[in-house]
Amino acid sequence: MVGVEETSNRSKGAGQLMIAAMAIALAAGLASALMFASITSGAAISLLLIILAPLPLMVVGLGWGAATAAIGGGAATVLIAALFGLPYSIAFVLVNVLPAWWLAHLILLARPHHNAAGDPDDALEWYPVGRILIWIVIFATIVTAATLLTMGGDAATIQKTLRTGWVELVEATGLVLNDSTLDALVLIAPIGAEITAVAMLTINLWLAAKIAATSGRLHRPWPDLKSTTLPMTAIAVLFAAIVCSFAGGLLAIMAQVLTSGLSMAYAMTGFAVLHTLTLAMKSRALWLGCVYAVVAGFAWALLAIALLGLADAVFGFRERYLRSRSPPPLPKS
């Protein structure tokens, strides 16, 4: 009888946990859907809410598993489709549900570490942060490319739509711009959209991981972000995209989008390089603060940080620096 009671209690406990997880998933999906739907209000705060719309799904994905994020995202998608129609629901899936589900799955993905020591944290090898960055670039590129293709099926139509949008925006603000400035804005619009998408997905994922870790629900150790590296194949893809950027037409626009996304990823590794190379500096916080301030004030400085990340991938600055600071081997007895 005691064994039967214990089995019954365990079944009830498992059922209660499942119900709680489902409730959390639905609550996260509802929150994400409401934040995404705020775009229809036209309020200024809706821009911030749309940017943070993937956050609730990412939090539950990291804290309760990727399947939970998929359940919450699926329920939210049905709600969005019922209220606003199929196009909005497709956009919601691409921008929020798929990244939240897949990135949470990757972050919690691990395999046994064959060279593990006694530390239990070293018993598992977790999915590399650099490869997660590549997936962020992939999602951002898909969203940006899909958005551009809704404007037209060829480069001329897309550029015409972008130009019309800029003209309407400029007229609404009361400014007057010449043709050359408008041409420049049309050129940089897809690039800016890609960079923004990569940055926002990264920030949302970092915030979600911080929230899950603070609440004790992140079921993996916090990674050493200073050691983040991109796979070497990313260099080949980047240079191929740069070459295709001069091909002209729709291919050039898509290649420029991919180039800007990968450049943003290398900029993030460039910041990791700076955080590593300044470890021994007494005024490290001041130097890093100045670098971040310059990047925030001058967008072109981000290119220099990306070049630093790319140079580190080729020449191994961090590896050489850490090797030079490692203690010498103990003498043999």
Rank of each mutant, 00 (worst) to 15 (best):
L17E: 09
G73K: 11
T229P: 03
A43M: 10
A265L: 10
G270N: 09
K332F: 15
S32A: 04
W102Q: 12
I138Y: 02
I71F: 11
M264C: 10
D312I: 06
T150D: 14
G3N: 12
A280P: 04
I24A: 10
K226G: 07
A140V: 01
G309M: 05
T77R: 05
I24S: 09
L86E: 04
G249I: 01
P231D: 00
A208V: 05
I188P: 00
L52Q: 00
T150G: 10
S32L: 00
W101F: 13
I134H: 01
A272P: 11
L262F: 00
A240I: 12
M232K: 14
A213N: 13
L279N: 13
I253S: 08
G152P: 08
L48Q: 04
T276K: 00
L205C: 02
W135I: 00
T173L: 14
N96E: 05
L302T: 14
A212Q: 04
W287Y: 14
A213Y: 12
M18V: 08
A285R: 12
I138P: 02
T144I: 08
L83A: 15
S8M: 15
L124N: 13
S324C: 03
F139D: 07
V93K: 01
L177G: 04
V143T: 06
I132N: 12
M264D: 01
C290M: 14
P120M: 09
